[in-house]
């Protein structure tokens, strides 16, 4: 039930943001279409933790800010690699352990690794991610451990 209300509010906010009309007739049409969508979603049994991630902590936004800074820093590092006269590439596939309990936490951690330029998640299994790193600096385990700790902190209430 909580998930249905959350989805309804999110859908109606999206509808408002995209349409920008505030006439009563159009607003009621929007509410009706959102209700119909929520009905269809509940019939398809889509109202779970994956589709409506209300279980995530609000500090996810703070985590996104931190992630943005990390992304900027590592993009500068990758740009230096690209622009160097002799590209100092030493590609490697490293196994990174992950300590999250839920699948949502795994997805957030893997997507954060991939979003940071210089590291790409290629495969997962056995409680590890297989991460492709461009140089030795990007493959350092300390950076992954810090990101892992932060993702575990936002994962579940």
């Amino acid at each position: 039930m909580k998930k249905a209300v959350g989805l309804l509010v999110a859908l109606f906010a999206l509808w408002l943001a995209l349409s920008g009309y505030f006439k009563p007739f159009l607003l009621s049409l929007g509410v009706l279409s959102c209700l119909f969508t929520v009905y269809l979603a509940s019939r398809m049994k889509l109202l779970d933790d994956e589709a409506v991630p209300l279980q995530l902590r609000p500090s996810l936004l703070l985590y996104w800010g931190w992630l943005g800074r990390e992304v900027f820093k590592s993009s500068i590092a990758v740009s230096r690699v690209i622009l160097a006269r002799e590209m100092p590439i030493s590609q490697q596939l490293v196994a990174v352990p992950c300590t999250q309990k839920t699948e949502m936490g795994h997805v957030i951690f893997a997507n954060s690794i991939t979003l940071t330029p210089g590291t790409v998640t290629a495969e997962s299994g056995n409680g590890h991610f297989l991460v492709h790193a461009l140089t030795d600096d990007f493959a350092a385990p300390e950076g992954f451990a810090e990101m892992d700790r932060r993702v575990t902190a936002v994962e579940d209430r």
Binding site: Q91, Q92, L93, V120, A122, H128, A139
Partner: peptide
């Protein structure tokens, strides 16, 4: 990006001049 990487990995494409490979521990 992960979809491309995973598809290339599954197709057996490996990086050139690979320094370190810990794929066995994951798959």
């Amino acid at each position: 990006t992960h979809a491309v990487a995973n598809a290339a990995f599954t197709a057996g494409i490996r990086p050139v001049r690979l320094r370190k490979n810990e794929a066995d521990r994951v798959i």
